[in-house]
Computed example of a mutant assay.
Amino acid sequence: MGKDEKNVMERNFLLFLIISQEEFQSNTVVCVLFYMWNILDLLRYPYELLCLISSPSFNMLWARYTVSIPVYVLSVIVEGISIFLTLPYYESQGTYSAQFKTPISVYVHFPYVLMAYLPLLATGTGVSVLILLEERRQMLKSWTTKIKTS
């Protein structure tokens, strides 16, 4: 699974399960989350477009591979905060909690699922940041090599 598919799945999870709570939609953290996602896209897509059309400038390359890393980390922190802030809503309403009829009856309490997702989110972010840093190192190295050979 590529980075884009992971981002789409993660955003859909947050949009449909977390932000779908009407009481939570007017919360400031939702607005900040949308801003962070849009900043990430504004750093990524113009660079990708310039790669298709011509060679992007060093400033565009640097912004894409340097500025996007802390913005990504901040967006994940905001995602974690939004999940944490929705826990009382799901706790009080019992939404998405269910009893599964299997040979062993299992009750899944949705706030526990969300709490279990938070460490997974942190672990995935750590791995993603390491990959992004390595990708940044390779891209900046290839840029300096390209400049030296020109």
Score class of each variant (00 low, 15 high):
residue 14 L to I: 13
residue 15 L to Y: 01
residue 15 L to T: 15
residue 17 L to T: 09
residue 17 L to M: 08
residue 17 L to V: 13
residue 20 S to C: 04
residue 20 S to G: 06
residue 22 E to D: 14
residue 24 F to N: 04
residue 25 Q to V: 05
residue 25 Q to G: 09
residue 25 Q to H: 10
residue 27 N to S: 14
residue 27 N to I: 09
residue 27 N to V: 02
residue 27 N to W: 01
residue 28 T to I: 14
residue 30 V to L: 00
residue 31 C to Q: 12
residue 33 L to P: 03
residue 33 L to H: 08
residue 34 F to L: 12
residue 34 F to S: 13
residue 37 W to R: 12
residue 41 D to R: 01
residue 43 L to S: 02
residue 44 R to C: 05
residue 44 R to A: 08
residue 45 Y to T: 12
residue 46 P to I: 09
residue 47 Y to R: 09
residue 48 E to K: 05
residue 52 L to F: 08
residue 55 S to W: 03
residue 56 P to E: 01
residue 56 P to D: 05
residue 57 S to W: 03
residue 59 N to D: 15
residue 61 L to H: 04
residue 62 W to V: 06
residue 64 R to P: 00
residue 64 R to L: 07
residue 64 R to Y: 01
residue 66 T to S: 15
residue 68 S to F: 04
residue 69 I to C: 06
residue 72 Y to G: 07
residue 72 Y to C: 05
residue 74 L to H: 03
residue 75 S to C: 06
residue 75 S to Y: 02
residue 76 V to E: 10
residue 77 I to H: 03
residue 77 I to M: 11
residue 79 E to P: 00
residue 79 E to D: 09
residue 80 G to C: 15
residue 81 I to M: 02
residue 82 S to P: 00
residue 83 I to P: 00
residue 83 I to Q: 00
residue 83 I to E: 02
residue 85 L to Q: 10
residue 85 L to F: 01
residue 88 P to F: 02
residue 88 P to V: 03
residue 89 Y to P: 02
residue 89 Y to H: 14
residue 90 Y to K: 01
residue 91 E to P: 00
residue 91 E to V: 06
residue 91 E to I: 11
residue 91 E to S: 12
residue 92 S to G: 07
residue 93 Q to K: 13
residue 93 Q to P: 02
residue 95 T to L: 07
residue 96 Y to L: 15
residue 97 S to V: 03
residue 100 F to N: 03
residue 100 F to L: 15
residue 103 P to A: 13
residue 105 S to F: 03
residue 105 S to K: 08
residue 106 V to R: 10
residue 107 Y to I: 11
residue 107 Y to Q: 13
residue 107 Y to G: 07
residue 108 V to P: 00
residue 110 F to K: 02
residue 111 P to A: 04
residue 113 V to R: 08
residue 114 L to S: 12
residue 117 Y to P: 00
residue 117 Y to W: 15
residue 119 P to Y: 06
residue 119 P to H: 10
residue 120 L to G: 09
residue 121 L to V: 03
residue 122 A to K: 08
residue 123 T to C: 13
residue 123 T to A: 10
residue 123 T to S: 15
residue 123 T to E: 10
residue 124 G to E: 01
residue 124 G to Q: 06
residue 124 G to F: 00
residue 124 G to T: 03
residue 126 G to V: 06
residue 130 L to W: 08
residue 130 L to N: 12
residue 131 I to Q: 10
residue 133 L to N: 05
residue 133 L to V: 13
residue 134 E to W: 01
residue 134 E to G: 06
residue 135 E to N: 11
residue 135 E to Q: 13
residue 138 Q to N: 10
residue 138 Q to D: 06
residue 139 M to T: 15
residue 139 M to E: 12
residue 139 M to R: 15
residue 140 L to Y: 07
residue 140 L to G: 10
residue 140 L to P: 03
residue 141 K to W: 08
residue 142 S to R: 13
residue 145 T to K: 14
residue 146 K to V: 05
residue 147 I to Y: 04
